[in-house]
C-alpha cells in the first residue's frame, strides 16, 4: 500500500465529512487533527467514539467543525474542553448528545450491515427526548411489556486513528485497543497514521495478529511520528500532562488559542514541537 504524506492525507478529507475519532485514551490521531487544521477543513461533522477530547476541541477551536455527536467532550484532568464550551455557547457548533454504549452500538449496527440494534438503559434520560432518530419499541420477544431502545446504524464517511505499525499490505497494529476495529469496520473510508513501518506481515505473526486491523479495511496510511502526542500511545510513550495543561490554559481565550495554533499547529510539524 502506498504511504501518503500526512498533510496530503488530511487534505483528502472533504469539507462536511462525517468523521469518527477515538477518545483520548485510544490512539487519538492528534497529528492528523493538526494537519486538518492546517488544511483549513470546514463543516466537519465529528463523531466521538464514544467520547471526545483534545483533537475534537482543537478542531472546533480552529473553526473546522459544524457538529459533534458524542457522549462527552472533556480534557480529562485538564478540565472542561474550552473551545467546545465557547463555540457551543456562541452557537458556532452543534452538539448531538449520546451516551457511550449507544455510540458503540450504532457503529456495531453499521459494522454488521443491519439497520438498527437495541440497547438497554437510556429510557428516562432526556437524551432520548432529543434524539428523534432513536426509538423505543416493545420487546417483541417478551411475554409482557418490555420497552427497549432501538438505535439506527451509524456509518461514518471517514474513520481516522493512529496505530503503532503498518506493514506493506496496509495491515495496522493497534495493540490492546481492539475497539478501533469497530470504527474501521463501520466507516466508508479508513485513514490511519502510524508511528513506523515494519517489513513483516503483521497478520502472519500469531502474537501480533489479534491486535492487528486488516488492510482490507484501511484505505490509506501516513507516517506521523509521535502521532498521538500530547496523548499517550500504548507503552510507546506517556501522556504529556504539562502540554495538555498548557493547551487547556491557552485555549481558554480566543487569543490564547490562536497563540497555541501558531506555536504548535500552523508553523511546526507536531513531531518537532514534541521534541
Amino acid at each position: 500500500m502506498a504511504l501518503e504524506n500526512l498533510d496530503a492525507l488530511a487534505a483528502s478529507v472533504p469539507d462536511g465529512a462525517l468523521v469518527a475519532l477515538p477518545p483520548d485514551n485510544s490512539l487519538t490521531p492528534a497529528a492528523f487533527a493538526r494537519a486538518l487544521v492546517r488544511a483549513g477543513k470546514r463543516e466537519l461533522r465529528l463523531v466521538g467514539v464514544p467520547v471526545s477530547g483534545y483533537a475534537t476541541d482543537l478542531l472546533i477551536g480552529a473553526g473546522c467543525v459544524a457538529s459533534v455527536q458524542t457522549s462527552g467532550v472533556s480534557l480529562g484532568e485538564a478540565g472542561f474542553a474550552p473551545c467546545f464550551t465557547r463555540a457551543l455557547a456562541a452557537g458556532l457548533v452543534k452538539v448531538i448528545d449520546a451516551t457511550c454504549p449507544a455510540m458503540h452500538t450504532m457503529l456495531q449496527a453499521a459494522e454488521k450491515g443491519v439497520p438498527f440494534m437495541p440497547l438497554r438503559g437510556v429510557i428516562g434520560s432526556d437524551i432520548l427526548a432529543h434524539r428523534p432518530d432513536w426509538k423505543v419499541i416493545d420487546n417483541p420477544f417478551a411475554a409482557s411489556g418490555d420497552p427497549i431502545v432501538l438505535l439506527p446504524a451509524l456509518q461514518p464517511d471517514i474513520a481516522v486513528f493512529h496505530a503503532v505499525m503498518a506493514d506493506p499490505d496496509g495491515n495496522v497494529w493497534v495493540g490492546k485497543r481492539r475497539e478501533l476495529a469497530t470504527i474501521a469496520h463501520a466507516a466508508r473510508r479508513v485513514l490511519v497514521t502510524v508511528e513506523r513501518l515494519t517489513d513483516r506481515n503483521l497478520l502472519d505473526d500469531d502474537r501480533l495478529a489479534p491486535g492487528t486491523i486488516s488492510g482490507a479495511y484501511v484505505d490509506a496510511t501516513a507516517l506521523a511520528e509521535r502521532g498521538t502526542w500530547p496523548i499517550a500511545l500504548l507503552d510507546e510513550y506517556g501522556f504529556d500532562a504539562a502540554h495538555m495543561a498548557e493547551y487547556a490554559k491557552l485555549a481558554r481565550s480566543e487569543d490564547g488559542f490562536r497563540a497555541y495554533l501558531e506555536r504548535y499547529v500552523l508553523t511546526l510539524p507536531a513531531q518537532a514541537a514534541a521534541e
Binding site: 457522549s71 474542553a81 452538539v95 449507544a102 438503559g121 434520560s125
Partner: peptide
C-alpha cells in the same frame, strides 16, 4: 462535558 455512559450504567 456530557452524559458519558451514565444513561446506561445507572440502570444496568
Amino acid at each position: 462535558p456530557g452524559s458519558f455512559g451514565s444513561a446506561f450504567m445507572y440502570l444496568m
